[in-house]
Computed example of a mutant assay.
Amino acid sequence: MRNRLTAFILTGMVLGVIVGFATNIWVGGDKTLAKDVAGYYHLLADIFLHLIKMIIAPLVFSTLVAGIAH
């Protein structure tokens, strides 16, 4: 199971580098297009961070309850 998770993480990192490089080539030197594309990536990053924040509170609560109950 651990090797599978490592493979997923490494695959995600490689895909991120490939997408970033492809976006850099596609945008070229056009600054207005670069700002638009960066805005789309920023939206995806904001959604990801909000999802992570939604997980933290229940995780902390369940850890405290389990610790007290134990």
Score class of each variant (00 low, 15 high):
I56K: 12
G29Q: 14
A45Y: 10
K53I: 04
K31F: 03
T11M: 06
T6N: 07
R4G: 01
I55A: 14
I52F: 08
V17Y: 10
A45W: 11
W26T: 08
L15N: 02
N24F: 05
V19K: 09
Y41S: 09
T6V: 07
L33I: 09
A22F: 08
F8Y: 11
L33Q: 10
G39A: 10
T32Q: 13
D46Y: 07
I47K: 10
G16F: 10
D36P: 00
L59S: 15
F21K: 08
I56G: 01
G39H: 07
N24G: 14
L51T: 07
N3K: 04
P58M: 06
T23D: 03
L5F: 04
W26A: 15
D46K: 14
A45E: 14
V17Q: 03
I18H: 05
K35R: 14
L44A: 15
L49H: 15
L15K: 03
G16E: 05
I9G: 00
L15I: 09
L5E: 03
W26Y: 15
L51H: 06
A22T: 09
V37H: 02
L43T: 14
L59N: 08
I25K: 12
A34S: 08
I47C: 07
K31L: 11
V37A: 12
I9R: 10
V19M: 12
F48L: 15
W26I: 12
I55C: 05
M13I: 13
I56T: 12
R4S: 09
D30V: 07
V37C: 03
Y41W: 13
L15T: 05
M13R: 04
T6I: 09
I18D: 02
V19Y: 06
I56S: 02
D30N: 15
L59R: 12
L51Y: 09
L43E: 13
L59D: 05
L49M: 15
P58H: 07
T32W: 04
A38G: 06
T32K: 13
G39R: 05
V14W: 01
H42I: 01
L44C: 09
R2Y: 06
G28Q: 03
Y41P: 00
T23N: 05
A7K: 04
G29H: 12
A7Q: 04
G28R: 01
G29M: 07
A57P: 02
L44Q: 04
I9F: 09
L33T: 10
M13C: 06
D36T: 14
A7R: 04
K53E: 13
D36C: 00
I56D: 05
M13V: 11
V14E: 00
N24L: 04
F8G: 00
L10E: 06
I9S: 06
G12F: 09
I52D: 02
D46F: 08
V19E: 12
A7T: 02
L15V: 10
V27K: 01
R4A: 12
I55D: 04
L49V: 14
I55K: 03
L49Y: 15
T6G: 01
V19C: 08
A22Y: 03
V14Y: 01
L33C: 00
G28K: 01
I47S: 11
V14I: 15
